[in-house]
């Protein structure tokens, strides 16, 4: 159907080629990072570089989840370009709902020492009541925003259990953040939650410094 990948795949025999295609489709479409035990093209560094090359054709890159598991996500430079395109940015209501879920499900438990520092996934659901109260959105609009966020994999619903009322947690897309994207998100949350804190001042100073450096090299 497409010649896009042909130059990268042509040098390989049929078996290798199938392994490359399987690894590519797996990291692009799986819900969670996939184990390299299952995918030869993720296990072997030379083949993995080719998977990386295939992903780069659409602006994506491999992300290592832990020692032996992989998934894909947007490259940082591509994500920055896409974020400048208003069509590619979700509407403000969806972003507001998502920010609330991140604050309740990740930032607060992390501050309490319940979550590891570098993860944006969380077992602590944000109750729907909390979203209703804090967003002040009419129920219909909140429901529509949650529906679209769920479809996009940005939030996931947790059914009510014996001990809690259920609610929403960050969705599987949060597996797909690069290290730099995770850091940026962490900084944004600090800037939003404590704009007058010393930590926020340090982040702003570091960003000013980085912009100055980039200005000089451009």
């Amino acid at each position: 159907m497409s010649e896009l990948f042909e130059p990268l795949l042509r040098p390989y025999d049929e078996r290798r080629r199938a392994e490359l295609v399987a690894a590519y489709m797996a990291v692009e479409h799986a819900a969670e990072p996939v184990s390299e035990v299952r995918f030869a093209a993720l296990r072997e560094p030379a083949l993995r570089r080719t998977v990386e090359g295939m992903l780069a054709l659409t602006g994506r890159t491999l992300i290592r989840a832990d020692q032996t598991r992989w998934i894909s996500g947007f490259r940082d430079d591509v994500a920055a370009e896409l974020a400048r395109d208003p069509e590619c940015v979700p509407p403000v209501r969806e972003r507001a709902v998502l920010a609330l879920v991140l604050i309740h499900s990740v930032a607060i438990p992390r501050a309490a020492g319940l979550l590891a520092d570098d993860s944006w996934l969380s077992p602590y659901p944000t109750p729907v009541d909390e979203l209703r109260r804090r967003t002040q959105l009419p129920v219909g609009e909140l429901d529509a925003a949650l529906r679209r966020l769920r479809t996009a994999g940005l939030v996931a619903q947790v059914k009510a259990g014996a001990d809690d009322a259920g609610g929403f947690v960050p969705g599987p897309q949060f597996h797909r953040l690069t290290g730099a994207a995770r850091r940026r998100l962490q900084e944004e949350l600090i800037l939003a939650a404590g704009p007058d804190s010393p930590l926020a001042a340090a982040i702003r100073a570091r960003r000013r410094g980085r912009e100055r450096d980039e200005g000089e090299t451009a």
Binding site: M1, S2, L4, F5, L9, R17, A18, L20, V21, A22, Y24, M25, A26, E28, H29, A30, A31, E32, V34, R38, F39, M54, G153, A156, P172
Partner: peptide, 19 residues
């Protein structure tokens, strides 16, 4: 997608797709 593959390929590898 390369070589006519579709996300259905994940089933062969017992890998869960996006829910």
């Amino acid at each position: 997608w390369p070589d006519g593959a579709t996300p259905a390929l994940l089933e062969e590898y017992e890998t869960a797709p996006m829910p």
